[in-house]
Design a protein around this nucleic acid. Structure first.
Lengths: 227, 227
DNA sequence: CCTGCTATTTATCGATCGATCACCAACGAA
DNA sequence: TTCGTTGGTGATCGATCGATAAATAGCAGG
């Protein structure tokens, strides 16, 4: 991910293979657009890469194409299908699974570049955010709700559909972790330095709430069925 | 707040008092910059206001001055000192106080314009966010921690200093509410439509966690004192 | 109705930005 | 060494943007 860009040793031009150059441009663009947003100037990006601005247009016919490549690489490329298995692995306590997941997720996804590009894209009205949220619901929130049901001794979602408040409870856990990185990388404010402790404590605090709301949902449901 | 802008009834120019025109420009700028960010063009802002672009420069010598006026108006202007009293009013249960506060806070502060301008400003590296967070810590997070201490039957902060994990627990509550509006106004994704129910449920879920971490903090502290 | 003040517009400057094109030079094949 | 392919650069175009200055028009006071 971190391609070391030599700033053209002397004044000479350096000729790279198209694959290497493209990689270098995309990596540089991720850093650059994370810093200043997709409104950043192609000339400044080129300067940081140690190349001239027209060269960008040899690899990407328009600036927008480069931006979309960045979105693709950052958002779609970093999702791991195995996370769903990790969440659903009932040989370990749910608490431990959530902590393990969020430590992994924070390392792979909740980085400086990811958080900032994600927020820039959201503000720009890109639909990449909505696409990602669909991925998140299907691959994380619903599995979490399913496991919370199990941990609460409640019926599985195949018997009683997941309520919107249960999804919101899963969002609460996610929001608490996510917002930590918003504070760190967007507001650039000091945060609790021990990330592992923060994740563990936050999961502890928010998971109990999710278990409670699930029990309430099920109790209300059973009340409804009886009536 | 919502100044009705007549788009110049016919082609004629309309002459307003400086106060009215300035108010109209600032209100329009809040809407406009919330939508597109402070990078939005002065010509487009002027067009939306039904005035010409140079007129903006009669009221604000530079674009940056208008932007800072918007920050001032939105962030500093909307904070209510009475919120701290509401949080600290021990004649009502803490749960009810928090719900009442967040309903008020959501109505006054967590609006489309506020959330978006706040996030745009954060990404732009403005220090307005850090200033606001200082306000938030002093006027909300610390008072909440203080009340959580009381509700948990724990010593007051004057006896045992508030730990960073307790502050983070207060942040968890705040993040859960805040992120709901990020989803609504930045990602523009469907959210639970019943805001009052969402706030009440979220406070219920996150407050118990905060009480628990406070009890743990105090227990660890007392352990330390004994040893 | 006239006159002076000033809110508002018209016209335009200089800088910047995305994009294009003709030209240059690095490297492999012969 | 020569030469062709192609990665890379210099120069520049047209559009856009913040900002300025001169011209215009609405309105109050006489």
């Amino acid at each position: 991910m971190a391609t070391k860009t030599k700033p053209a040793p002397d004044g000479k031009r350096q000729r790279l293979s198209p694959e290497d150059r493209e990689r270098q441009i995309v990596d540089g663009a991720i850093q650059f657009f994370a810093e200043v947003g997709s409104g950043g100037q192609t000339r400044e990006l080129a300067q940081r890469l140690g190349i001239t601005q027209p060269l960008l247009y040899r690899y990407f016919p328009a600036k927008q194409d480069l931006i979309e490549r960045v979105y693709e690489e950052v958002f779609i490329g970093r999702w791991k299908g195995e996370w769903e298995d990790l969440i659903s692995d009932r040989t370990k306590p749910l608490r431990e699974r959530l902590i393990a997941f969020y430590e992994d997720y924070a390392r792979d996804t909740l980085t400086y570049e990811w958080i900032r590009i994600y927020m820039f894209a959201g503000l720009a009205g890109e639909d990449i955010n909505r696409r990602y949220i669909q991925l998140l619901e299907k691959g994380l929130l619903i599995p979490v709700c399913t496991e919370v049901r199990d941990a609460a001794g409640a019926p599985s979602p195949t018997d009683v559909a997941i309520s919107s408040l249960e999804i919101e409870a899963a969002w609460n856990i996610h929001a608490a972790i996510f917002y930590y990185f918003v504070r760190k990388y967007i507001y650039q404010t000091p945060v609790e330095p021990d990330l592992a402790a923060y994740i563990a404590d936050t999961v502890d605090r928010t998971l109990d709430g999710a278990l409670a709301i699930t029990r309430e949902t099920i109790a209300a449901e059973q009340q409804r069925v009886v009536a």
